[in-house]
């Protein structure tokens, strides 16, 4: 949200919460009290501060700069994700892969219609061997960063059953739609051969530990 401070709220006559006594702030009139900052002060005091979405100008600059290269980054994210999905889908230590471009996915047709240029780079798969195999797997990855966020330029991984959701037993996890061996990946912009090599090593260790 950007406000240039040039709009004449009073002349427009359409914004009583800026130009008339406002009960929420003890009859304060924002346009009178803050002049050119009337809108931005109200937006921040009453909207952004309460909800926490306060962006600094520097952050806004980074977002705008990032948007410039987003389309070509997304192409690479998706291309990498497809290679990783194909690898995992064939792997003997993997129970199943949940990625909408696979025909096994329940929303495959919908995805083809809504996301014709690719189903993104965030998906999950189930590793054979449950919770222990999942933990061993993420502990043995070296290129993937072990983080709870998604969409980074670098590849990220999380195993809910041993981290974010470790307090839940198998039944509670199942009720939430999370398998004990479920792993979520967010595929970054690295060389896909490196990513697959990393996954391959960690899967081998995990299946060895599960035996």
């Amino acid at each position: 949200m950007i406000d240039g401070g040039t709009f004449d709220w009073e002349a427009s006559g359409k914004f009583p919460t800026l130009t008339e006594a406002y009960e929420g702030f003890h009859d304060l009139v924002f346009a009178e009290e803050f002049g050119p900052q009337a809108f931005i002060v109200r937006a921040r005091r009453e909207g952004l501060r309460d909800f926490g979405a306060c962006m600094s100008p520097t952050t806004a600059f980074h977002v705008l700069q990032g948007l410039e290269t987003l389309p070509i980054r997304m192409e690479k994210h998706v291309a990498n994700a497809r290679e990783v999905v194909a690898f995992l889908d064939e792997h003997e230590a993997v129970e199943s892969v949940s990625y909408p471009e696979l025909t096994s996915h329940p929303d495959h047709d919908l995805s083809a219609r809504l996301l014709p240029r690719g189903a993104g780079a965030v998906f999950s798969f189930d590793i054979k061997g449950g919770r222990d195999a999942g933990r061993t797997f993420i502990e043995n990855l070296s290129i993937f960063s072990h983080l709870a966020n998604v969409g980074d330029a670098k590849s990220l991984v999380i195993h809910p059953a041993s981290t974010t959701h470790h307090r839940m037993d198998a039944e509670a996890l199942a009720a939430a739609g999370i398998g004990e061996g479920l792993v979520r990946l967010s595929i970054g912009l690295e060389d896909p051969r490196d990513l697959i090599g990393d996954l391959s090593r960690a899967l081998r260790r995990a299946s060895r530990a599960a035996r």
């Binding site: 401070g5 900052q37 931005i40 002060v41 921040r44 306060c54 962006m55 100008p57």
Partner: peptide, 10 residues
């Protein structure tokens, strides 16, 4: 001091 407000713009 008022985050998000453009110092010179004000």
């Amino acid at each position: 001091a008022n985050p998000g407000v453009w110092m010179l713009g004000v």
